[in-house]
Design a protein around this nucleic acid. Structure first.
Length: 392
DNA sequence: GTCATGTTTCCTGTTT
DNA sequence: GAAACAGGAAACATGA
């Protein structure tokens, strides 16, 4: 494949230029891209999928540009960046003039979209321009954002990491479409969401599962991607929470018009059932300790919105000035919210109910006639550009 | 223990 | 017909 050839060229150019260069140290911001370190070291598939000239340690340096502000990129960072995009877009690199690729970050940042297209062509140029803007935005925001945003950022990072590398194996998308991890690696900067969201939307409403089917029964998922199966710093590992099964007691028999009898739940949230084998769970002082109250739902939504470089198409601003925003991947956002609240059965339907409660409190305002569109109300804060001190 | 708050869950009905 | 919206009702978790 020609793109692979260019990759080799670029990689060799890197090695040549920086033979003396950067030590293969781990990125200094482990929270930002936790997956890169672990995956690239632990999964031979990653390195074997790269060019023969590329060692595992080279993979580390290849990703270094991601940790840096584009304004601080050296020439080899620019080459790494281009190389990654050439591979990920399967661009025919034979048409690319390598001489034109040699520039440092500050020079690159001065190139506008048209010039980018002129240098890299109509296929790769716009792609690179968009990527550069994303990288720039990312570092502008990182500079300006306060520490209160860290939790959501980490959740977003973790969320995408888990999507990219579920348990170091493969994920199953739909029925039988296996996508190798390496293929997903290179989706990282692009529309990964379109590829994976279907796989992670809830596997049916767990409330409609039979009573012995808990979504925590990971073995029953047989390879289908499930958030319940993904380890998370927040979800913990040993404290599986049993409250998401639906006891028989909460159902009642009702007659349909046809006179058929069917199961129906009473209105409202089903009561928790204390089961014998769980008594220790409820007595567990660790569980009852006052956990620091997390951010509220609207704050969680806000934090996703003000980190466009991390939300990867989950949500977008419709009108930033007015505070109007739209869910693009509503179920994915709900899953993330559920992950934050340690509730793997969260759905957009439930999330949206909570959102609707905000109307009364004027944290959100209705946007009539537009689906998945909400607007921040006068009692919300922290989303306005003036408030977070960024020029948009 | 009680209460308020902020969800979460489920439901029925309506709108798109 | 499906998805999203709307809002009532009840339960739950947490903090004061």
């Amino acid at each position: 494949m020609s793109s692979t050839c260019l990759s080799s060229v670029l990689t060799r150019a890197n090695l040549t230029m920086y033979q003396t260069g950067l030590p293969d140290v781990l990125p200094s911001q482990p929270n930002v891209l936790p997956s890169i370190n672990t995956m690239q070291l632990s999964n031979p598939a990653y390195s074997s999928g790269l060019t023969g000239a590329t060692s595992v340690s080279t993979v580390h340096s290849r990703q270094m540009y991601r940790q840096l502000n584009p304004h601080c990129w050296a020439a080899h960072h620019v080459l790494e960046w281009i190389s990654d995009h050439v591979e990920s877009t399967k661009f025919d690199a034979t048409t690319l003039n390598l001489d034109l690729c040699v520039m440092d970050g500050p020079t690159l940042c001065q190139i506008n979209r048209d010039q980018m297209i002129e240098v890299f062509g109509p296929q790769l140029g716009p792609h690179l321009h968009q990527s550069l803007q994303d990288h720039k935005t990312k570092y502008e925001l990182q500079t300006l954002s306060g520490p209160e945003l860290d939790e959501t950022c980490q959740l977003l990072d973790h969320f995408w990491s888990n999507l990219n590398f579920p348990l170091l194996s493969t994920i199953v998308i739909g029925q039988g479409d296996e996508v190798s991890k390496r293929e997903l690696d290179y989706q990282d900067d692009y529309d990964l969401t379109s590829l994976t969201m279907d796989a992670m939307t809830p596997m049916g409403d767990p409330g409609y599962l039979s009573d012995n089917q808990s979504e925590y029964s990971s073995s029953s998922n047989s390879g289908m991607f499930s958030f319940a199966n993904v380890s998370s710093p927040e979800s913990g590992s040993s404290e599986s929470e049993p409250e998401f099964s639906y006891p028989v007691i909460s159902k009642m028999n009702v007659k349909t018009e046809n006179g058929e009898s069917r199961l129906k739940r009473p209105r409202g949230r089903p009561p928790k059932v204390s089961r014998d084998h769980n008594s220790s769970f409820y007595d567990n002082p660790k569980k009852n300790k006052h956990a620091p109250r997390g951010t509220h739902l609207w704050e969680f939504i806000r934090d996703i919105l003000i980190h466009p470089e991390k939300n990867q198409g989950l949500m977008k601003w419709e009108d930033r000035r007015e505070g109007i925003f739209k869910f693009l991947k509503s179920e994915a956002v709900a899953q993330m919210w559920g992950q934050k609240k340690k509730n793997s059965s969260m759905t957009y339907e439930k999330l949206s109910r909570a959102m609707r409660y905000y109307y009364k409190r004027e944290i959100l305002e209705r946007v009539d006639g537009r689906r998945l569109v909400y607007k921040f109300g006068k009692n919300s804060s922290g989303w306005k550009t003036e408030e977070i001190g960024m020029a948009m």
